[in-house]
Amino acid sequence: MAAAAIPTQARSKQLRACLLCSIIQLPVDFRKNGCPNCEEIMQMKMNSDRIASCTTTYFDGVVAVVDPENSWVARWQRTSKYVRGMYAVRVKGRIPEDVELELENRGIKYRPRDQTDQE
């Protein structure tokens, strides 16, 4: 089972959450490995600007997803298919427009992580 880099500093103000999958990592990890879940579409690896626009420090609530497949929390957060690691409950902001466009092209519904459109 894959796992994301677990940030060593829980209280770090640098922690950033991915706007798409809500995983929390240190910027340095995003830079080195990109997003463990959505790197393919976010293209953050080695791209600081991209990291800045695709992740945010503005999130609320931290989930430690130990067993994504079986956890209801992960399912509720729609992170069951993602690697295990730290996720944010709520992430403020929207992904950049190009990513949103790309998702649209692929027919994927974009669900912002800010809990604004929960039905």
């Binding site: 579409i41 994927i108 669900r111």
Partner: peptide, 17 residues
């Protein structure tokens, strides 16, 4: 890294979760 982002869970309505 090349794992394609599918967002397969995104289609499920929240209430089913």
């Amino acid at each position: 890294p090349a794992v394609r982002y599918t967002g397969d869970m995104n289609e499920i309505p929240q209430r089913l979760l």
